[in-house]
């Protein structure tokens, strides 16, 4: 059963990817659709940042990730390169966990 679910999940995800490239161009002429397509990544990325910074399953927690993401926010604001932002966040969290076990 797990194999069937995996394959159906893969097929469903591919169908959405392909459908986006395949719907008629007239959909793009709709300004509301364009606005939504531009705004949606902002909503999704902001939600992913929030849940992956504070979420642990269905609980909200404060741990070393918060410090890592805060450092990343400063780096992103200063327009530092992508890799620097990511490495700074991981390094901050890892060092904080060495200093404060369990954080």
């Amino acid at each position: 059963m797990i194999w069937a679910a995996i394959l159906v999940g893969c097929a469903g995800c591919f169908a959405f990817k392909w459908a986006g490239l395949s719907v008629p161009a007239s959909v793009l002429a709709n300004r509301t659709a364009q606005r939504i397509a531009a705004l949606l990544p902002i909503a999704l990325l902001a939600a992913l940042i929030a849940t992956q910074t504070f979420g642990a399953g269905q609980h909200l927690v404060l741990d070393a990730r918060v410090a890592g993401v805060a450092v990343a926010a400063v780096a992103a604001w200063r327009r530092w390169p992508f890799l620097v932002i990511v490495v700074l966040a991981a390094g901050t969290a890892a060092v904080l966990r060495l200093l404060v076990p369990g954080s």
Binding site: L48, I49, A89
Partner: peptide, 13 residues
């Protein structure tokens, strides 16, 4: 390795 902090940082970037 702080990988759980790297993920939201990547989205932030």
């Amino acid at each position: 390795l702080g990988m759980d902090a790297a993920a939201p940082a990547a989205f932030l970037a």
